[in-house]
Each structure stands twice: as C-alpha cells, then as structure tokens.
Amino acid sequence: MFETVLGLYNYWIVIVLMMAGFYTVIARGNLAKKVIGLNIFQTSVFLMYITMGAVEGGTAPIVSEEATVYSNPLPSVLILTAIVVGVATTAVGLALVVRIREAFGTLEEDEVLALEHRMDRGA
C-alpha cells in the first residue's frame, strides 16, 4: 500500500494534473480558462512520458567509462515534439478566444451560447 502511494509518486502527480486539467476543460465556463485547463492536461502527459524514460541512477545517454546505467532519451525527445504541438494548440486556442471576445463581447460560455441561439433563430 505504502509502496503504491509513495513509490509511484511520479505517476500520482501525473494523474492529479491530468484530472485537474480535464476537469477545468469540462467544468469551467470561461473560454480562456478552458484553454489553460487543456494546457495543464497536456502537460501531465508530457510528465508521464518523461517519467517513464527516467531510470533511477541513470545518466544522460552518452557513452563513457564510469556510466553503466543510462536513461532512455527517446521519450524526452518525443515530448519535445509534443511540447511544440501543445504550444501551437494553446496559441491557436487563445487566438480564437480573442476573436470570440471581439465578436461576442464576452468569454462566458453560457452568454456566448445564448447569443448564438439568438443568431440561429434570426438566420
């Protein structure tokens, strides 16, 4: 029991971040906060990849006399790509938020929905 809680603390951090981000995306009414929640959600996945590549006591994967245990570099490299994707997603998301604010004058989801309904009926 103690082992599963503390021994795998890195995975618990991942799970807590993941759920916090996911909850923010679903439950928050503010469109900008949703984008931030999405970002936290993605960050938890970055941590998950990096932590699974790490080896206790391992060094950077450069061949040398002293080192015998190396960490796996591949997950970190993958996550470099995923970070770029995450930044791009957040940028596009926030850009859309700015334009929604310009068009609707609000960022609250229920107010935007009400305005949209009025447009749908008018069209």
């Binding site: 469109l31 999405l38 959600f41 996945v45 997950p75 997603t89 998301g93 929604i100 447009m119």
Partner: peptide
C-alpha cells in the same frame, strides 16, 4: 459568421482532448 469562431473553438478543445487521449494511449503502449 462570428459563430465560425466559436465552432472552431469547440472543435479545438474536443479535437485536442482526442489527440491527447491518443498520445496517452500510445505512451502506455510504449
């Protein structure tokens, strides 16, 4: 239409969630 912005926004949120779920899945496979 201004609703294009909100539609794109919803697509972005749900699409990114879907893609991130996919990355979690392949991370676990890896």
């Amino acid at each position: 239409d201004p609703r294009a912005q909100t539609s794109a926004y919803r697509y972005l949120i749900l699409g990114s969630l879907g893609a991130t779920f996919y990355v979690i899945g392949i991370g676990l496979l890896y």
